[in-house]
Design a protein around this nucleic acid. Sequence first.
DNA 1: AAGACGGGGAG
DNA 2: CTCCCAGTCTT
Length: 344
Amino acid sequence: MLQWYKAEKRDLPWRKERDPYKIWVSEIMLQQTRVDTVIPYFERFIDQFPTIEALAAAEEDKVLKAWEGLGYYSRVRNLQAAAREVHERYGGKVPNTLKEISSLKGVGPYTSGAILSIAYGVPEPAVDGNVMRVLSRILSIWEDIAKPSSRKVFEEAVRQLISTEDPSSFNQALMELGALICTPSSPSCLLCPVREHCSAFHEGTINELPVKTKKKTMRHVHLAAAVVKTEKEEVIIQKRPPEGLLANLWEFPNTELSGMGNPRVELELFLKREYGLDVQLEAEPFAKIQHVFSHLTWDIDVYEGTVSSAIPKKENSRVVKTEEVEEYAFSVSHQKIWKKAKGR
DNA sequence: AAGACGGGGAG
DNA sequence: CTCCCAGTCTT
C-alpha cells in the first residue's frame, strides 16, 4: 500500500510542505468536503492568512468571507479561535501532543490523528469515512460505521497495522486508497494494491461492506425574504446570530412563515416590527428559491420593495451600497437571492 | 445515541 | 432523488 501511495498519490497543495498550520487548515476544510472542492479555497485561504498569526489577527468577517460557500461555518470560526489559542498559549506553534491538540476547538479524534501523523510523524490513527470503508472491506468488519462507537474498532485496527516508520504516509495511503480505488460504489478492485489481502474481495462481499444505516428526517421551512432598496442604490442586509445555522453570515431580511395568511403581509409586518420600516413590497415575489441543507430545506419567497431612505434601526443590520454587497459573506441561498435581484 | 451543522458532485 | 464526502459539537 505504501509503495502504491508513493507512486500514485495526488499532487495536492497541502502536500507541498510540512507546515503544521497548513496541514491543519487542510484537514478542517476537508471535513465532510471533497478534495476538488477544497483545493481553490485552500489556495486562497493560505494566500490571505499565510500563518497562524495572520489568521489570529484577522477580522472574523474576512475569515468568513474566505470560507463563503464551503459550508459548516463553525469550522472556520472554531479554527480562528483555536489559532488564537495556539498563538497565545503555545507561542504560535501547533502542539504535538494528543492531549493538547485535541483540546483545540474543532479538532476531534480524526483531525488530531491526522495532524499528529502527517505534520509530526506520530503513529496515531486518523479514522475518517474512507478509512472505515477500506478497513471494513479488507478486514471484513461488519460494525455499522454510522454508529459513533464503531470508530474505536477501526482505530484499534489501525494501531495494529500502522507503520511506525512512516505514519504520515500510512494514514494518507489508507485515505487515498478510499478516494481513488476503494470507492463507495463500484470500487476498482482490479487496480487495488492490497487486493490479495482483502477479505471482502475474496469473499465477494465488496458490495455489502461497509455496513451503514441511514438516517433522515428532512424538515421543511417556508420563509419570505425582502430585498429592500433605497433610492440611493443601497440595500438592507442583516447579520445572523452568533450561534446555530449559518452563524454570523449576512443575509437579506427574512422571516419564517406561519403557513397561514399572505406571505407578503407577514414580511411587511416583520419589517415594521424589526426595522420600524413601512415598506410597500411588490405584490408578488420576483423569485422563489429552494435551498437544501443536510437536515432541512428552505423554501424562500423573495419580494422586492423600495424605501426613500433607511435608517438601520436594527443593531445587527446595515444599509450597504449595492456594489458592495458582495464584500460580505452570504450563505449560498442568499447569494442566489442577490443574483436574481441584480438581474432585474 | 441522535441531531445539528452546508454544499456540491455523482449515479 | 439519494448518497456521501479527509467530522465535530451539543443534547
